[in-house]
Computed example of a mutant assay.
Amino acid sequence: MGIQWSGVMPAVTTKFTNEDTLDLVNFEKNIKAQVEAGVSGIILGGTLGEASTLTQNEKKILIEKTVEIVQKKIPVIINIAEQSTKDAIEAARLAKEYGAQGLMMLPPMRYKADSRETVVYFKKVANSTPLPIMIYNNPVDYGIEVTLDMLAELAECENIQAVKESTRDISNVTRMRNRFGDRFAILCGVDTLALESILMGADGWVAGLVCAFPAETVAICNLAKAGKIKEAITIYRWFLPLLELDISTKLVQNIKLAEVATGIGTENVREPRLPLAGEERNRVLAIINEGLKSRPILPDYKNL
């Protein structure tokens, strides 16, 4: 399956039972809600997916289960966030073996690689696999920026096809378009900059709050891409207080609490994370409840 790097691609949460095992019942409920809302792909094992706490066997189960649920309607993509090139190459091999159709790749973890090392890392992994790749450019959280000069070198690898743009610099979308044209698809990776990025030429949105509000997220993206800007802005303004729950160190707990409120998830996280408590929990619940009270009626965003 080729990947159209566009539209909304949820970075889904991983569901856990009270016994800290994979909760595939609630996981399936959420994935089906995403598909029904019209998302363009499913991304597993990102930050929201609590990837650093997952075993290799759990990643295998999640990929295989998602492939089964989506029934080839949309691609299944898994994040690669490894410490060594060797481990990243092996992760890519296993992803293909388990049935994933694409990869999202972070630079090396822990060690702060320089530009040359980072480019070589990406190239070696890309050259080891036929799977299409989206580079995850998030220097704010992960400490390494994939610059335009680095992307120019990575353009040699045909299967490096997209960039998840999370620098928080909205003008970077224009810089990429000016330099590379359509060589790379661009997907915004910051919920609070998504509409702005799409209006500046981004192809899509790797979203977080979509985990709890799939229809609203896809509606914003579809309306904006169809030129119905006022309609998109109206929904986006309603959504912004909720979207700000994504730009937090507790984004996983925040978004899982929102999933509970919309009936497509649970609060269970894997330790050392703990569910929200006390005043922090009350503050987040107040934002979620206010959003639910004023939840907009959506237009027919699937048929624009």
Rank of each mutant, 00 (worst) to 15 (best):
I3A: 13
W5S: 06
G7C: 05
K15R: 02
E19M: 07
E19C: 03
A33S: 07
V35T: 01
A37G: 02
G38P: 05
V39R: 00
I42W: 15
L44D: 07
T47V: 07
L48D: 01
E50V: 00
N57C: 09
E64N: 08
K65F: 15
E68H: 12
V70A: 09
N79C: 11
N79Y: 14
A81H: 07
E82D: 08
S84P: 05
A88R: 01
E90I: 03
A91G: 05
A95V: 01
E97M: 08
E97I: 05
G102V: 04
P108Y: 14
M109W: 15
M109Y: 13
R116V: 06
V120G: 11
Y121A: 08
Y121R: 05
V125E: 07
P132F: 14
Y136L: 08
N137H: 08
N137A: 10
I144E: 12
L148D: 10
A152E: 14
E153C: 00
N159S: 09
Q161H: 10
N172V: 02
V173D: 13
M176G: 08
N178T: 05
L187Y: 11
C188N: 12
A194C: 14
E196F: 14
A202P: 07
W205N: 04
V206A: 12
V206D: 07
G208Y: 04
G208Q: 03
G208N: 03
L209N: 03
F213D: 00
E216I: 00
N222Q: 11
A226Q: 02
I235E: 14
F239I: 01
L243A: 15
L245Q: 02
S248V: 00
N254D: 05
I255S: 04
A258E: 06
A258C: 11
T266I: 07
V269T: 04
V269G: 08
L274V: 03
L276G: 11
E280D: 11
N282T: 03
S294H: 09
S294L: 09
D300V: 02
K302S: 05
